[in-house]
Design a protein around this nucleic acid. Structure first.
Lengths: 193, 193
DNA sequence: TCCATAAACTAACGTTTGTTAGTTTTTATA
DNA sequence: TATAAAAACTAACAAACGTTAGTTTATGGA
């Protein structure tokens, strides 16, 4: 019984798939492409994975589950709203640095999910957005934040953080710490002096 | 000679293609899908268009050409750097509201361009980014802007503006004018009070 | 009304796709 | 070392893909 090897291979397949989906999109990546990257025939992949769709589902829900549980954690800490939002932004950036390919797939290729999985993913995302928006709203009500339109603030934050995954390379002269600090400055204090 | 009809049909094909590419991705959209949307057989599309690739090219370069010429225009106006950046952000938002599907394709599906077209598109984008970054840099040097990392500021702006196309629907209670104003507030003044 | 051309159609092509079936090789344990 | 399970392989499938060829229909100017 070589159960150990099986889950490791599955993990490798998911990781290579995330990289390929990020680079060429879900629909633009074939199982033969993936096989080539993993080092086996396309047909052999099915020893580790039920279908191409299941690969996408695993990647997308890994990411959405992570976000949702990070939000839940932040919600029940006893800090200011401004701090909570700051922590959430930091966590976004960190997940992106650690698992950029998976985050990219969850951001861009979730639309290829089908049936229950598609609705479940959209629901999870909506719950996350509502929770995040509530924190902003309460922060404004508490006078910690500017009275800007909540949706605008939410989506500006969520997408401002996305570029990290397209742009950041370690060894570009900016450390992860600096990066976080600069983005937080931009989003919280703005560009104007 | 009915040349008139031909270019109108071509335009319709490009517009429907942009919508489909946005919704399902370039690789996820078939010529038969497109034919269905336009109201003709897939083969008939080739009376108006050389190939599926050419459709993508037309959409992507329409967008990049627009951005590049908008930048050129802003560069030679005699205003403050802060104003120039504000105008560029406004123009981003407007193009997104007017031609959201095309912008979305240029943002997400440019990677399916091939050969010269791919490098030409990447070059155009790079020139745009450098020009924008130069304005930020000069704005900081002139003391009009905070001394934040220029790349971080640039990409935060460029991607913060992207969500508009995913989220904005006229009749969501936010007018285009309010939207612009709120985004500018977020990016220039920040969320914190 | 006739005619040239534009623009639609049908049919088919060679590939590539995701996936299955059946077989062989590798691997871990008894 | 024998054995059973795991994980690789080859071969093939039906469907969908972009595109071409050849044909028919629609259209606008002489």
């Amino acid at each position: 019984m070589a159960k150990r090897g099986k889950i490791n291979q599955r993990q490798r397949i998911l990781e290579e798939a995330a990289k390929l989906f990020k680079a060429k999109g879900f629909a633009g990546t074939s199982m033969r492409d993936l096989g080539g990257e993993v080092g086996m025939e396309a047909a052999s992949i099915y020893n580790h994975v039920r279908s191409k769709d299941e690969i996408l589902e695993s990647i997308c829900f890994y990411v959405s589950d992570t976000y949702v549980s990070q939000l839940a954690e932040v919600e029940q800490t006893a800090t200011s709203y401004k701090d909570k939002i700051q922590v959430l932004i930091r966590q976004h950036i960190r997940l992106m640095l650690e698992d950029g390919a998976a985050v990219s797939v969850a951001n861009n290729d979730w639309k290829y999910l089908t049936g229950d999985k598609l609705t479940a993913f959209k629901d999870a995302r909506k719950r996350y957005e509502h929770g995040f928006a509530a924190l902003i709203e309460q922060g404004i009500a508490a006078g910690e934040l500017q009275p800007v339109n909540v949706s605008v603030a939410l989506f500006t934050i969520l997408s401002a953080v996305r570029w990290v995954e397209l742009w950041y390379r370690p060894g570009r002269g900016v450390s992860a710490e600096e990066l976080e600090q600069n983005i937080l400055t931009m989003l919280l204090n703005g560009l104007a002096v």
